[in-house]
Design a protein around this nucleic acid. Structure first.
Lengths: 192, 192
DNA sequence: ATTATCTATAGATCTATAGATAATGC
DNA sequence: ATTATCTATAGATCTATAGATAATGC
């Protein structure tokens, strides 16, 4: 029954990663501790040695997946500053991002639930991530001043998040594609 | 115990209206049938004579509140076509809309949960409403062609929804205000 | 007689805990 | 000896239903 410390740490990692995917796919209340642990090949009783509570896991899983996304944006900006804005926008508004929430930005699948969770650490994690996303965008916007680039980085981020959410909401596939295409076009150039 | 048909119909109306507010405030799973009925001054047993299921109420409540919002947009467009775009944007991105989800557009509070509900009628209601919002915006956009106005109506709608969601998510009040202000500015002028 | 609402409860599900078990690590 | 994981369960909550009750409406 008992495994080595190394194995236990790896198990915990696996639970955090899996939770990050399942929360994005089904929402915070769409997956329970028992089912999550079973998906990780464990029983639910063991959960509470690794995590203080489900809320604790929610924070760790979101922090993990958000930081991964923010880091990827900053890497893109650092590696190819000229094309980074278009790259980031096209990746964010891809059909894959729309169709596979478990593999796309947590802002699109979970931000709407955050204010209802009464979880200060969770709100902090999302706030920190949002600043990270905006900072990355502000480095590559087409606007003239830094102030304006930052302002429009916030607008672009809002547009990206909203477009993915709406594209997932509608039943009409052609309309869903149109939403993504329109936002790709509308958010790339100068705004306002 | 029993009330008149008229009173029963009024009670049903009250439940639908209240549900529309509570779902927007707490999410579909944030309010149960018993608590909802108690808030309406009734007991939960009576619910199932008026509604087939909780899912049935979810559809009726969303359809009601979404249609109300769409109608208000179209009224604004009809009454003051010159200033309608700015009026709609400033109302959508107001502090009141951010701070009182129970009194603002259901897209901002509930769209993210729709794809997870496995409820075709609900998805249809949101799709219909989204087309209504986009049609209203397409009538008042600053773009040259109708085609372009419709495309950018979708982008503007995405930006509006995303901005409210993100403004509610962050813990930093100044940042929250900045998100709203940036989107008000960035979404009003020509896009792309 | 009909029916809108009430009381009571079945059945499912979820978080968290208690105590047992067996392998690790000193 | 310690501890990661397991089995079992307490306690809370939620949707939906069954049957009783009392006022409406014919």
């Amino acid at each position: 029954m008992r495994v080595s410390r190394e194995q236990a740490a790896a198990n915990k990692e696996r639970v955090i990663e899996l939770a990050g995917q399942l929360f994005r796919e089904r929402g915070f209340e769409g997956i329970g501790v028992a089912d999550l642990m079973a998906s990780a090949g464990l029983t639910h009783g063991g959960f509470y040695r690794q995590f203080e509570s489900k809320n604790d896991l929610v924070v760790q899983a979101c922090d993990r997946t958000l930081q991964t996304s923010v880091d990827r944006w900053h890497e893109t900006v650092a590696r190819e500053p000229e094309t980074a804005l278009v790259k980031i926008i096209n990746r964010y508004l891809s059909e894959h991002a729309r169709d596979v929430p478990s593999d796309s930005c947590a802002l699109t699948s979970l931000a709407g639930e955050v204010p209802r969770q009464n979880n200060a650490a969770l709100t902090e994690a999302f706030t920190r991530a949002l600043k990270g996303f905006a900072d990355a965008l502000a480095r590559v916007g087409p606007e003239a001043t830094a102030e304006e680039r930052y302002q429009q980085a916030l607008t672009r981020l809002a547009g990206l998040v909203g477009a993915v959410i709406l594209a997932r909401t509608v039943s009409d596939p052609a309309l869903s594609d149109e939403i993504l295409a329109a936002a790709r076009k509308g958010l790339t150039g100068p705004l306002g």
